[in-house]
Design a protein around this nucleic acid. Sequence first.
DNA 1: GAAAGAATCTTTACAGTGATAAGTTTGGTG
DNA 2: CACCAAACTTATCACTGTAAAGATTCTTTC
Lengths: 203, 203
Amino acid sequence: MKKASERKRNTYHVGNLRVLLLSAAREMLEEVGPTKLSVRAVSDKVGVSCTAAYHHFANRTELVGCLAAKGFDELATVLAEQDRGTPKEEKIRTASLAYFSFARKNPALYQLMFGPEFSDSEMISELQSSRREAFGELKRIVAEYLDKDAQTAEVRGAALAGWSHTHGLASLVIHNVVRPPAEITDERFVDMSLEGFRSIFAG
Amino acid sequence: MKKASERKRNTYHVGNLRVLLLSAAREMLEEVGPTKLSVRAVSDKVGVSCTAAYHHFANRTELVGCLAAKGFDELATVLAEQDRGTPKEEKIRTASLAYFSFARKNPALYQLMFGPEFSDSEMISELQSSRREAFGELKRIVAEYLDKDAQTAEVRGAALAGWSHTHGLASLVIHNVVRPPAEITDERFVDMSLEGFRSIFAG
DNA sequence: GAAAGAATCTTTACAGTGATAAGTTTGGTG
DNA sequence: CACCAAACTTATCACTGTAAAGATTCTTTC
């Protein structure tokens, strides 16, 4: 009596549709772009009706917000990994590089994380805490670099500055506003910009 | 024999629909947000059928691209104005402040200018040249600050760094990733970040 | 000044989007 | 086994970008 859909669905209730949707979404994200990721397409890919998704996520924003949250977690991890064993003086450079490299490897995800999608709505506490933790990692690194306590105003300012700079650089490149010369590696490019800042403060 | 629409249209052919659409779009932009600006809503506001817009713009992207281009023009103008008469040593700070202030005053426009909308498509030469000119203005300012020729690698690097930093700061704030303390002015906030950078390079 | 052609605008239509409401199937629990 | 709650489906709506084809007006040419 299965007049229902023609989809092959061995398991009717998957049980963990949520994670299936999320990983399908993550897979499609880089192909499709941050704005064009649709609930329907994701559901289709999993082999489920699109309204099924609305039983696990309040709306598209929440789905995509979880993706962004995972992005921040991943970013924090990468930063921590790359920082491990780095000598003090190199910490800022290494972190900047890891950050920039992460952004270049996952442009759509990065655009999502810092895009206009969540600027108004304060919901998705998961996203907010993941963000906070990623920034925390940054502050930790800067604190060690400066040999100061992480709660210091100086550390906070320096972390803000470093984050702004690297995020700005990544954002400009990802959005094709600035195009780094083809013959130059990401590493060189980040160094160029850091050097640029140094020369601003030299005078 | 006017069985046509019920809209009041004294002048059937306006002649300059293009500019009308653009200014209507600009007006709505800040209310509606960069992603939710629709061709239909804009056309409605002008009092014209939505397909009429497609006689003046190839698609939504082009419409919104012209808006962004104008944004870059405006930004370049603001930078130039604020720079005029500023003593050499203050030029970077003044430019950063003017830039940041522009972004805060026109958040939606700013998001549009640096959003994912135009990252793939290379069209809209107007946008591209406006962008280039805005960056040119930045380079000019940095060149004067450093007392070097604008074509120098050093100037280019410093301009890139300065742009990245201020753009990053503006982007983080506009997207609510970082929330500047309420009691602090924009001016103080930018200074804080610049100070932060100085302390990074002090050691 | 009239007729032809170009520009401009409208109606209609389609496919894809986020989202809701109401019904159906399933797994688990008494 | 019966029932209930969770998971999923089928409509359906309002809205979006965009194309096609027809209508209206402006402009140019004779």
